[in-house]
Amino acid sequence: MKKKSVLELLLGEWNTKTIVAIALGAALFGVLMNYGGITVFTNVKLTTAFLVPVVVGALFGPIPAALAAGLGNVIADTIGGWGYWWDWSIGNAVLGLLVGCLPLYGADIAKGIFKTKHAIIYVVIAVVGNALAFGLITPIFTQLFYGGELVVTFLQANAATLSNIAVLVIGGLPVLYALAARNASAQNLTKK
């Protein structure tokens, strides 16, 4: 098979399945943001929603993962009715993009390939990505949109970062392993 270029891997394959995956991912993200978490710090939640872009990314690539997380946050705000937090949506999209990068470093969950090497890269990206998304991107936009005290924004960002890393590592790794195992088993089927 032809090796895919980085750009192709980044964009993922844009067919109807991808669109549905983003939609279902966003819906799930929105629901889990609302009901699947515990509040840690003012407007920061320990939420399981972040498992969603990981799965979308693993199966469909980073850009779909980013869209699922970003739109998912907007949907969460819409069904929650607590007003729109665009700064956090953007941060979430960035994090979605980064944790959704699995195909870029060779993990192919759809074919059941997820090795220790990939797991390590994934964890590193989860840590660095969080620092970037919520330590830098979100505060910049918070400042831009609503003003505020940078120290507090950073403080919140740190709390978000820590809780997200916890979810991404403790929850994300088992999900990825399970998903890979599941797809690996769906091959070469015969009746006994």
Binding site: R182, S185, A186, L189, K191, K192
Partner: peptide, 11 residues
């Protein structure tokens, strides 16, 4: 279903 007991459900 005995003959397929080792299959994944989505098949």
């Amino acid at each position: 279903l005995e003959s397929m007991s080792h299959w994944p459900i989505n098949a």
